[in-house]
Amino acid sequence: MGKAVGIHLEIRGLQKRFGERLVIENIDLQVREGEFVAIVGRSGCGKSTLLRLIAGLETPTEGKITQDNIWVQGINPAVRVMFQEPRLLPWQKVSDNVALGMDGKTEDIEERTSQILQQVGLEDYKDEWPAVLSGGQRQRVALARALVSRPRLLLLDEPLGALDALTRIEMQQLIEKLLQKQGTTALLVTHDVEEAVALADRVILLEEGEITLDLPIPLPRPRQRNSTKFVSLAGRILDRIMQTSANESSRQVL
């Protein structure tokens, strides 16, 4: 059982238009193998579109996305996505949901499924229907489903946005632990600056389809949320977001 190695992601001159509307203006971005990058920004800044472009769910208008120097077009099988909603199939048991899209021998799949369910703490629920689970449990199943095939790139599209504060912190710790173990490259889209600083090696601010801040987070893991460094980093990013929007509104007044 070798450690899965994350992908090296490179984005060049990426642009996306929906009709007249320019959603992604011009993005260049490099993500190293096994790096965890968080993308923050106000709603409508294009961060979800960026993720969908990387997943191959949208086609870029301009530019290239390469993974390990290979130009990928269409849906990339090495990528797994965790959505804002769990998107579990309600007609499949928890274990079948986790095993969705896995190839290989049945025993092998079963073993890996129960192993990952154990890691997310849901081994007792493997024969349940998703309907009986709580919101947090469903999102844990979705995390297990995303990680069971040891993807080389994991895209997280505000996966914790709908959870309550306590469950969210629990999930953040779980994601951090499992991703470090697997060595997967990960991109997390979030509007929660604290979440970004807690999880990511690097935080990127996206504004009107462009990267306006690229900040490394050199804090040791596991991170102390009340440490001075943590608070000041989070504050800096938040100030930056608020400041630009303040400038914008004053510009509009003038």
Binding site: L57, R87, L89, Q92, G101
Partner: peptide, 20 residues
Amino acid sequence: GLIEMGKVYGLRGWTLFWKV
């Protein structure tokens, strides 16, 4: 959303039809 998820998780054609 489920169809999209199925596609990301590698389901195509008949499998997508039967499972989703």
